[in-house]
Design a protein around this nucleic acid. Structure first.
Lengths: 338, 338
DNA sequence: CTGAAAGCGCTTACAG
DNA sequence: CTGAAAGCGCTTACAG
């Protein structure tokens, strides 16, 4: 079954293609009677305008693209949900691409989206990204860009983020209030801003509570997965380090640490407490359940799409776009591991 | 910065648009010298043809769409990864839409994809889908369709699935070999084929091993989440039912059951063993770790895309498309819960 | 080997 | 209020 065109409708109703097009788009200079005839017929034959032909005239593709560092990842999936849901409401379709935390792939993916003439790009910067010229490309092409979660201080665009430093501060403060004094930190890689900020929040909480910062208590999780958490924890136990709590950069390393503690029959939280970050589904399902920081991904995604719409409309009005930084609130979730 | 067009290149090189187009597409009737000039220049100015204009001529959008029942879902995320990765290799972009297990939304999402003129649709049928005319629409529009995971026996299209019945049989047989005789089943909803097949595999394994099927040991998980598993487990314990093992339709209800057993201080697997299905990441991270059936999502996704390519090429050669059903192998993963 | 021309299906400025 | 015409940026059958 071939797709119908404006011409098919025009000839069926014995009017011009122009009038059909205008009627369907509710132009004021078409008679109500004609509009009704056209709309009724279009409805009847289930006509939908060809978006590719429309693009050629309007230069709006009604399409956006998302580049995330990981695909099978609870937090990023929540973000996807937020963006996609909001996009659907506004008749946008969403391409999903994954950078696998690689700088090269991130560049490629952005280029692919630009080639597809998307109206907007949503990006969470890969851990390995050390240079931002590919992001400047997006701005040069006049494509809207909204960065979320993993941002950089140097990108000239709007962003939707959380206050990582403050959230980490709250998490560590919580451990201190529980009487913990030797708090290790399983931090993320060195490059990403959020891993830096969570580390800074950790250090600040220690210092403001009169606990000396000890760099030997900081361990790097390059992949931010469970086995890194497990291995660091095992190392702490093997070396009999004086540690009474763990603050992990994310839930997976924290879950790995808990698994290790259980295997070594260490009491959680009495001997060692564990604090995660992000509130993945898994954190409530393990035993003991994991205390963590809730990072509302779906809300961030929805907000990111709204920022895109704002910028799109600002440009349509030929007004200058002012980049904004939105901070989404986080909440401490106390469970059994602290 | 405006996007460059063929005309820009043509006038820069003082040749015709036709020749530029042919040179870039390696037509044989363009001189090698001209091809080199054009390609070098196109490379230099970073030209990429406008895909919307190309579509209008070729009627290939180089775009596919996926409709999955849930977005934040380990198994479907693996499938996405498989399809997207394979699509990228072949220069396709992928729209992602979610049906939220709703029949109405599934219809809407398919219509959206058809309106965007995607070349192919990948679908996992929603739990609530009770009618398949919307799927017939896809075939009528001559759009390629590949169904994966949750299929129906009535859809006239290719599919990539697992042998749910056999996999469930293997899982229950494993429990029986461990000496379990009173095996409860937390089954999925009534409609989806995979939940029916897993149930049938369960029953068959019991019967072929001389264990009488007891319908009171079958509990329905409509949402297939952890709290249903938790609640059913609690009910079994509260009613002091004679049960020594659980076979759950998926990992999440199994994880919920384990959480409940731990809270009630029931020994796993000695008193009650628990078997999941799907091999989500979480199944290896909880304590005790969960025995399950590995269902290789990424592989299924990749295979699904290859089936799409085959059908596309068959149509291009004007040969009749023969629908195929691919079964992906599953593996039993034995861990500590059995 | 090269290029003029038609046409894909829309949108919209313009004429009547 | 209606419609002829131009044009978006490609592809390709056809002419030379």
């Amino acid at each position: 079954m071939k797709n119908l065109t404006l011409r098919d409708i025009a000839s069926a109703l014995n009017i011009s293609v122009t009038t059909v097009s205008k009627a369907l788009k509710n132009y004021p200079d078409v008679s109500v009677k004609t509009k009704e005839r056209v709309k009724a017929y279009a409805e009847k034959v289930n006509f939908t305008p060809n978006s590719f032909a429309a693009y050629l005239r309007t230069h709006e593709s009604k399409t956006v693209g998302i580049v995330i560092p990981r695909l099978n990842h609870f937090f990023f999936s929540s973000i996807l949900r937020g963006i996609i849901t909001e996009a659907e409401k506004h008749e946008y379709m969403t391409f999903i691409l994954c950078s696998d935390e690689s700088y090269e792939l991130e560049k490629t993916q952005i280029q692919r989206l630009l080639n597809k003439n998307v109206d907007g790009i949503f990006l969470s910067i890969a851990d390995k990204t050390h240079d931002l010229t590919h992001i400047q490309n997006i701005m040069d092409k006049d494509t809207n860009l909204v960065i979320f979660d993993k941002y950089s201080k140097l990108t000239p665009c709007s962003s939707v983020v959380i206050d990582d430093r403050k959230a980490a501060y709250t998490a560590v403060e919580h451990l201190i209030k529980k009487g913990k004094k030797r708090i290790a930190h399983f931090r993320g890689p060195l490059l990403p801003q959020n891993s830096i900020d969570r580390f800074l929040g950790y250090r600040q909480a220690l210092e403001e509570n009169g606990i000396e910062y000890d760099k030997d208590l900081v361990f790097i999780c390059d992949e931010i997965n469970d086995s890194e958490g497990y291995d660091h924890m095992q190392q702490i136990l093997d070396q009999k380090m004086d540690v009474d709590a763990i603050f992990a950069v994310a839930d997976l390393p924290a879950v790995g640490a808990i698994k290790c503690l259980i295997e070594n029959k260490v009491q959680i939280p009495e001997e060692i407490a564990v604090m995660g970050f992000s509130n993945w589904l898994i954190s409530s399902l393990i035993t003991p359940s994991l205390s963590t920081i809730d990072q509302p991904g779906e809300l961030m995604g929805r907000k990111a799409f709204q920022v895109f719409l704002d910028e799109r409309d600002t440009k349509k009005r030929n007004e200058p776009v002012v980049f904004q930084k939105y901070e989404i609130e986080t909440t401490l979730i106390e469970r059994k591991s602290t």
